[in-house]
C-alpha cells in the first residue's frame, strides 16, 4: 500500500485514509462576478494534467481531516514531498539519477 506523509500528523499513513482533491494552488479570482466566461472556464474547468511533476491538493479525510498540498510524479506515482496548506508552492528538480527532489535539498 502507498504510504503518504501527512504534514499535520507528521508521519506516513496508509493511502486509504486520504483523498485526492485536484490540482493545487488554484486561486479563486477576487472579482469573480466581473470576469469573462473564458476566464471563468479557465479558472473553473481547465487543469494542467501534466505527465510528470504535479502539484495536488490532498485531504487526510479519514485521519486529521486536514487539506494539504503534495508534489507527485504522475509517471512513477511517487510522492516527492507534502506540505501544509497556505505554504508556498514547493519547487522540485530532477537529479542526474532521475529522482525528483525538493529544490535545494540536494547538497
Amino acid at each position: 500500500m502507498l504510504l503518504i506523509h501527512c504534514p499535520y500528523c507528521q508521519e506516513e499513513r496508509p493511502e486509504l485514509e486520504f483523498r485526492n482533491m485536484g490540482e493545487a494552488h488554484i486561486e479563486r479570482p477576487k472579482n469573480i462576478a466581473d470576469i469573462s466566461d473564458e476566464a471563468f472556464e479557465a479558472f473553473f474547468f481547465i487543469r494542467s494534467n501534466p505527465k510528470g511533476v504535479t502539484h495536488e491538493r490532498w485531504r487526510h479525510v479519514h485521519g486529521c481531516a486536514r487539506f494539504f498540498n503534495a508534489v507527485r510524479d504522475t509517471v512513477s506515482d511517487r510522492f516527492v514531498a507534502t506540505y501544509k496548506s497556505g505554504e508556498p508552492r514547493l519547487e522540485v528538480e530532477r537529479g542526474e539519477d532521475g529522482e525528483l527532489l525538493v529544490k535545494g535539498a540536494r547538497s
Partner: peptide, 19 residues
C-alpha cells in the same frame, strides 16, 4: 485497519481516526 499499530508508533495512550 491499514494503519501501523505496532508499539513504536501506536503506544498505550495513542489514538487515531482511521479506517
Amino acid at each position: 485497519c491499514p494503519q501501523n499499530l505496532t508499539d513504536a508508533v501506536f503506544p498505550v495512550g495513542a489514538a487515531s481516526r482511521t479506517v
